[in-house]
Computed example of a mutant assay.
Amino acid sequence: MVALAGCVAPSAPPRTAMTAPAPPPAAPVTPPPAPLPGPVLTGERIQGGLIHGTAPAGTQIILDGKPVPTAPDGRFIIAFDRDAGPQATLIAILPDGRRQTETLAVAPRAWEIEELPIPKGTSPSPEFLRIRGEELRQIAAARAIGTDAAGWTQSFHWPITGRISGLFGSQRVYRGEKGAYHSGTDVARPAGTPVAAPADGVVILAADHPFTLEGNLLMVDHGMGLNSSFLHLSRIDVKPGDHVRQGQIIGAVGMTGRATGPHLHWSLKWRDARIDPLLLAGPMPAG
């Protein structure tokens, strides 16, 4: 074989470097939603007391096995009767389905008890019982009326100012037999003293004649099951269905019904619970 002058063997083609494909962008990670908070309660957990609550909108509230109405924004109220036990159970079913249970400790109170060494008295007559039964039916029917009143959201004011002559919860015991406890607060003032609405509300009962015990009775619903009763009035200035505003004059002090002197008996009730006006309106203003 003869080598050819000037001939150069062809070189191999250059190799191309292999580049790995870029990874696809990572999908954004969505953090799990924060758990909804449970109800927040404000107020004194005590016999005869009322507390306000706030929960996420759509939460179902249950107190001692009974559903509690809530506003669209999640606000609600609950109250404890004068004779409430030491504990209450509050259940909240949140919009996300979680169920929260809280045991509420209800503080007891030392009620004013008067022991009397005399018998309780004679039984009422059949005629009294007949009349009283109809009056109680009217009162129960009034309390069953639901209204759009929003007074339950307000700070309550005293309907009149003056000397407190009877305390909520006080009770007489006749030779060991308990009498009915005092269901409201009495304020002594002269007959004709104007009585103002302690909060916004709707009139649910304005008696057209004096009741046997309450006299001229006026009842105002403040919404969410909370209502006021004003007893022994000398006159009533509003009628059923009227919307009243806090501070509006609704009647006047008197001594109709079973009363030994002119005064206003103001009582408050949330559903079946009797509550203390003094805890809602605060100390009686001076003057």
Rank of each mutant, 00 (worst) to 15 (best):
S234I: 01
G121L: 12
L36D: 07
P69Y: 00
G43N: 09
G287W: 03
P119H: 02
S11Q: 11
S125D: 11
G225I: 00
L268G: 07
T193R: 03
E102R: 15
R245L: 12
R163F: 01
G151D: 04
H52N: 12
I46L: 13
Q100K: 08
I93N: 11
M219C: 14
W152F: 07
P24D: 12
A3G: 06
P86R: 05
L50R: 13
G146Y: 04
V253R: 08
V238K: 08
H265N: 14
R271V: 08
Q138L: 14
R274K: 12
G6Q: 01
P37E: 10
Q248R: 12
T42P: 00
P210W: 03
A197E: 09
K178V: 00
Q246E: 15
G261C: 00
P126S: 12
R109Y: 04
A110K: 09
L129H: 08
L268V: 05
P283V: 00
G97Y: 04
G225F: 03
K120S: 04
T193D: 09
G85F: 08
Q138F: 04
D64E: 04
A9F: 10
I249L: 13
F211T: 06
L264M: 11
P159Y: 10
P25F: 12
T16P: 04
A207V: 06
P25A: 15
G287E: 01
S229R: 11
G247I: 09
A26Y: 08
T59L: 06
A84Q: 14
A12R: 11
T70D: 01
T256F: 14
A17G: 09
A5I: 03
A259F: 10
A110H: 05
L218M: 11
E102Y: 04
I46F: 03
P95T: 07
T54L: 14
G74S: 10
S229D: 04
A92F: 00
P31V: 01
V253P: 05
Y181L: 06
A88W: 10
L268H: 01
E135F: 12
G97R: 11
V173S: 02
S155A: 15
I93Y: 02
D276E: 05
Y174V: 00
D83Y: 02
G261M: 02
L217Y: 13
V203N: 10
G38N: 06
A9M: 09
I236N: 03
G247E: 07
L213N: 12
T185L: 09
G151I: 08
Q47S: 01
P194H: 04
A20M: 15
P126H: 13
P194W: 08
I250F: 02
L280E: 09
G223Y: 02
G38S: 07
T101V: 15
V238A: 09
L63E: 06
K178P: 08
H232P: 11
G169D: 02
K120G: 07
F211G: 07
R175Q: 15
L41S: 05
A197M: 07
L226N: 07
V173A: 01
A180P: 06
